[in-house]
Design a binder for these strands. Structure first.
Lengths: 205, 205
DNA sequence: GCGCATATTGACCAAGCGGTTAATACATCG
DNA sequence: CGATGTATTAACCGCTTGGTCAATATGCGC
């Protein structure tokens, strides 16, 4: 009793959605063609019909992961903050809140990252994604370097942006392995303190 | 033709060494009982004789990974640096040099980290290890907070230490996915700049 | 030299995997 | 209604994996 039809795009989307759910729960290891098929409630042969390879399925899922969970969104509220330092702080806070609130997609991102360390095509895409992410910070750090050349020379916008990305990723590493113990507010306060908080004298209520 | 004997401890060590080499090259996915046996040049049955489970093998290997590659060593040269800030900078530089020079063990550590996000016992051990790592920084950051209460209040030694750990881990994430493009000197300069370089006026040759 | 406990092997098993394919249901167009 | 092309299924294949086990080689006390 082969089931009813469905246009190509719809089935692909349905399968990808199932793959995403499986990967979120079981990790990339658990992302087997059969598990995806089961989750989408269809035969695993059909998965091979729409994605000839498991590799293609994994690759297509990476598209979704990158588009959905690692693109840096800079909302207008933050974009309009006048001082670059304050804007950076707001962005960092947003990103850490985001990963604390919904850690699973970022966890999946890290799984692809690990895969990338041994698989060049994946590595290239992850690398490019991290570049984009860093670039979003770079526009801010460039402003900071420009308006405040007082700090020790040689500091580049690129370097500063890389540090910002490290803070986010490193925080994710710690927060995801021990969410209960990790104090995100302490962390953010420390970051703000280091970021020349003394100069601006800013203080939340 | 069953081979010659060897005392328990020796064979275990030999197998673990083989497992470590396999894991470094192939990752935890590639760490199959058979691959380990092949690398150690003995039958896979023997591996099961000394480690009844693959799980036990993986667990025993984690011991080695933690002991070997993630324990923070503070050499005397650094320990004797008078100013806490300078000491922190030296430590950060050491750690980043270390992971840039020999990334594979840290990569393996991250693989266990990923495993830990879905496997509670592993998670506990990784979490404890990160705690120890953070604690090593905490002794320094505590000193910094004490000698320099000028920066915005509320900054705790714990928070600062967590930030330091983030810098190391986050740097590893970026450096390992794109070693060619990642400029570790730029990165370190930026860190030092942020870390109040203006105050100390330090500058390497 | 003879047992005896201990290592060690290789054959074997069941399970799960990715992937292929013949058969079949379905929609669509004539 | 019948033909045609497309989805879909289920059975199947070959392979690898983790794990067990009987057979056997080895070293050691006697």
């Amino acid at each position: 009793m082969p089931g009813r039809k469905a246009p190509e795009a719809i089935r692909r989307e349905q399968i990808l959605k199932a793959a995403y759910e499986v990967a979120l729960r079981q990790g990339l290891d658990g992302l087997t063609v059969r598990a995806v098929a089961a989750r989408a409630k269809l035969s695993h042969g059909l998965v091979h019909f729409h994605f000839k390879d498991r590799a293609q399925l994994v690759s297509a899922l990476l598209d979704r992961v990158l588009a959905t969970t690692t693109a840096l969104q800079v909302p207008a509220v933050i974009a309009h903050i006048p001082r670059a330092e304050d804007r950076l702080r707001a962005l960092l806070r947003q990103e850490m809140d985001r990963l604390a609130k919904e850690p699973r997609p970022i966890r999946l991102f890290f799984e692809y990252w690990a895969l990338g360390t041994r698989h060049a095509p994946t590595r290239a895409r992850i690398s490019a994604e991290l570049d984009r992410y860093r670039a979003a910070f770079r526009t801010i750090t460039a402003e900071m370097v420009q308006t405040e050349p007082a700090r020790s020379a040689g500091v580049t916008p690129e370097g500063l942006a890389a540090v910002a990305v490290s803070l986010v990723n490193g925080c994710a590493v710690q927060a995801m392995i021990d969410p209960a113990h990790f104090e995100i507010e302490q962390y953010l306060t420390a970051v703000e303190g280091i970021l020349g908080g003394a100069r601006s004298g800013r203080r939340g209520a």
